[in-house]
Design a protein around this nucleic acid. Structure first.
Lengths: 214, 214
DNA sequence: GTCTATAATGAGATAGAC
DNA sequence: GTCTATCTCATTATAGAC
């Protein structure tokens, strides 16, 4: 029985070839999970897309559930850090208003998720699946709740007196509308312009928050 | 080979038992497709949930794809009619403003989709899957595009001078935020109140449209 | 209309050679 | 680290008895 990959008990650094394979596997899994869902994408198809055997997918990714979470986790930390850094940036410039909060939420994801067939488009679609499916609530709480809590907290500071449930609800609406850009851009028209959609999204959400100001 | 069920070439009316089985199959399919997605729900599980054999699921539902569309279609016509009727009602009362349009979109679905584990909750979740997955674009255009076109048209009348792409984008945001209530209520808090969420949703979307008024 | 049985395929996981 | 081969199980779909 082969041992599981674990940083704690690995003696040698992984080879460049191994790392490349691991990356291709995660990229392929990201794409296929996002397009076909957890059950619709098979490990065999992922292996084919990554140009690797099915056994190697299991070797690097573990079980299918583990691979799925690895894919979600890979960009979650980066995305979260980008968003929180933007909040800090606006704060230090003394410009942390509602518009800045919307910007800090929307832009780090969507500015990367406009390239058609790019990895961040697939990732965004994957996040859309995860955040609307209670089966993945463990992944959601682990990777997205801390950022959500921070945004809701900042909203509360800018909108004193508004109940936290209200802020949480409207935050979820912003999340949902944001994720509709990568998942439902095709519903906005034949040749819908992503940049235009992002602009409209920010205006839509900002109005939805300003509505709470006294 | 058994013939396909088709109103055109059926000589006898279906028995009450048959209709009951058919209804249970559609209900079970609606629930399992909405919870686990198209690929995550098996015809066997649907049969078990409907307390019929797997073969009977195929007999009434046809292929898996056909069953899926049957489930979506069953309530789509009703939902669409309810929405368009509400628009007419407001128009005849001389009250067809932006708030009325939001109400006419949101209420027919969500007022029915609050009962936990009720059929409309499952249906709403199913619609959320369908409208964010380009694999089902044929179903979307057939069952949802006409209503969408009507809403966008009415928005255009109330917001003269606003580009259609902008209206379509914001309509999609409203759709997405609306579907987040059944799919992501769990993200709004442990004991989130659906009525409260619906109230916030309407305010959020209304503000997002009013923002376009000059 | 409803069932049992089964064909044909593909799934996830793992053993073991190199 | 990577592969081939295989185990075991679940899947969709269909044939055919009643």
């Amino acid at each position: 029985m082969s041992r599981k990959i674990d940083d704690k008990d690995r003696l040698r650094a992984p080879s460049a070839k191994s790392l490349a394979a691991q990356g291709r596997i995660l990229d392929a899994a990201e794409k296929l999970f996002s397009l076909y869902g957890f059950d619709g994408a098979s490990l065999r198809d992922i292996g084919k897309a990554a140009e690797v055997s099915a056994a190697l997918v299991a070797h690097h990714g573990g079980t299918k559930d583990e691979l799925f979470e690895k894919v979600v986790a890979r960009r979650a930390a980066e995305l979260s850090a980008l968003r929180l850094a933007l909040i800090e940036e606006y704060r230090q410039a003394g410009q942390l208003d509602l518009a800045a909060l919307v910007e800090a939420y929307v832009t780090p994801l969507l500015s990367r998720a406009v390239t058609p067939d790019g990895p961040w488009v697939h990732y965004a679609r994957l996040v859309a699946h995860v955040s609307t499916d209670e089966r993945w609530s463990a992944i959601t709480s682990k990777w997205f709740d801390p950022t959500a809590a921070r945004f809701v907290e900042e909203l509360g500071l800018l909108l004193p007196g508004v109940a936290p449930e209200v802020l949480r609800a409207r935050y979820v609406f912003m999340v949902s509308a944001t994720l509709s850009v990568p998942t439902a851009l095709w519903r906005m028209g034949e040749n819908a312009d992503p940049a235009r959609a992002i602009q409209e999204l920010k205006a839509f959400c900002l109005a939805g928050f300003k509505d709470l100001a006294v």
